[in-house]
Design a protein around this nucleic acid. Structure first.
Lengths: 307, 307
DNA sequence: TGTCAAGCATGACCTCTAGTTATACCTCAT
DNA sequence: ATGAGGTATAACTAGAGGTCATGCTTGACA
């Protein structure tokens, strides 16, 4: 275009340099001049000379092309995770367990990515994911999640039963869900937390209908009730780690199935930042499962032990 | 395009705002995304949300569009003479007479225009005009100027005869060219100055062949020879003003025709700056002619007087 | 001075981009 | 269920932007 003509001093030379033919350049310049409303190039016998309007336009065009180039580079940088943004949601118990580790690892690998994390349970986070307000949401359970949301299974979070220290069943050698059929239950749910469905289904399979003494979506609160002896509760491994010592945690495997921990993504596009976070999460999931302490019923001081 | 989609939050709304249809926008965005290689817009049920790559691109695009706007305004400003450039050439005698006035007037009216003036006689300035190195050239005589050069007649510069003070004809009441038929002449010309042709033609019409004693294109030098009594010379009114007082200047009207003073322009495009300078020159020409002092032969101290 | 080379402009034609309309499909709200 | 509001897609078309062939002007040169 104009710049090349200016650089080469003639239409023909510019055309050759651009791989076009001379008439193409001629027409291009003509229409450009018509648009601008002034002559940009003086046709002289030896070729072409810029008018002052032409010189101005070449100057500006070069500046603009440089900006375009910058933008392109920035896009590439963003694809290379030297920029960008990741807005992530997590449910409460992950927020106090695996998520801090993930954030730390991600920050270390991709310090240039702007990372924001909010706490939101799936009934809140999934629609926001679909609406584009979030890029990634950590979820448990996969019920009622619309198919346009992509779900990636990270790991299974075992569910344990929690009872007050000194509970009659606390020291029993082998336990299963049915042993607690007559206990009052603390249910870790409101509308916003899906863990309860998993639990209720397991109870039905175990052949009883649990008596619900209290519902709350906050596990620390539930553990307070448990410690006070109001009843027993199912709590996930995530929460069981570092539990208060007036509560005993026991594995019911296999009668109480684990809850799946999922990463939820808006289907279709997966940004580089999202992919990177997924990689971090999958890596961390392996470590997390491996670091799960064995849950034993032998000693209260050593209460985390797998059967 | 992308910016409008971002602004309106949906393809349809952007389309309506731009006067296009929705599919047009849809395809535009799709091809843009293909070019860029990443998704720019997340399609969500309620419309469209920018990805971070999209946000970046919108930012940059807006910056670039702003620059385009700037460039457009600058072009307009240039058309309004708030910028631009004028490269002008002048022949020697105008350079010391009317041109300084023209430059001063132009500078005052259009201070933002970059004005450069070089001295060049037509055989030099006209080709440079055609080659686009100059925008305007002041010329005398119109011989041998190719038709692609546009010539604007500004005014006529009368030609006077100059002789040494005390020359036998200095005090004669009425003079014409033929009276000097036998005098040796100083010819104000080399190849570069066309004044001589005018003179020679006038001599032929007056019926004699002048004897050329000396040729030079520098009028002050010629006047030196004239003052020394080497011969006589034709000098234009421009030069006659403020001539040394050992030289007498007399009008030969109508036997010695005036030389035309012309503005020469490259044909075709006339930049705003050129138009403005032409206006200044035409205005000034009127004043210049009106301010021509009367040339009288009565007294040497009052030697400028028209017959 | 005639002729040739080099430059831009222009007409005829072709190709592909970027619109159009019509329609399908999805999601949400009633 | 169904209608409203959103995007995607197919089929078509106009026009922008190429190509080729050709004409015109100018400058160089024999």
């Amino acid at each position: 275009m104009l710049c090349e003509v200016a650089r080469h001093g003639s239409f023909s030379a510019a055309a050759e340099s651009l791989g076009y033919t001379q008439p193409a350049i001629s027409r291009q310049i003509a229409t450009l001049e018509a648009e601008v409303g002034t002559t940009l190039i003086r046709r002289v016998p030896k070729g072409a000379v810029l008018t002052d309007a032409g010189m101005l336009l070449v100057d500006r065009a070069e500046a603009i092309l440089a900006r375009l180039d910058d933008a392109e580079n920035e896009l590439r940088a963003l694809a290379g995770l030297e920029g960008g943004r990741l807005r992530m949601a997590t449910f409460a118990s992950a927020a106090s367990s695996i998520v801090p580790l993930a954030i730390a690892a991600f920050r270390e690998r991709h310090p240039a990515v702007e990372l924001s994390v909010v706490m939101a349970d799936p009934p809140d986070s999934i629609p926001r994911l679909r609406a584009g307000e979030l890029d990634l949401a950590l979820s448990h359970d996969a019920i009622d999640i619309p198919p346009v949301i992509e779900l990636i299974h990270l790991f299974d979070d075992p569910m344990y039963v929690a009872m007050r220290a000194g509970h009659p069943l606390a020291e029993s050698p082998a336990l299963e869900l049915a042993d607690f059929a007559t206990e009052p239950w603390m249910l870790a749910t409101t509308q916003t937390c899906p863990d309860s469905r998993l639990f209720l289904r397991a109870c039905h399979e175990a052949g009883f209908e649990p008596q619900i003494a209290f519902q709350n979506d906050d596990y620390p609160a539930i553990l307070g009730f448990v410690a006070a002896g109001v009843g027993v509760a199912m709590i996930p491994d995530m929460v069981a780690r570092g539990v208060r010592d007036d509560v005993v945690v026991r594995d019911l495997d296999p009668s109480a199935p684990p809850r799946p921990i999922l990463a939820a993504l808006a289907g279709g596009y997966r940004s580089p930042a999202v992919s990177a976070m997924l990689a971090v999460l999958e890596e961390l999931s392996g470590e997390w499962v491996a670091s799960r302490p064995p849950l034993s019923f032998a000693a209260k001081s050593d209460q985390f032990a797998r059967t």
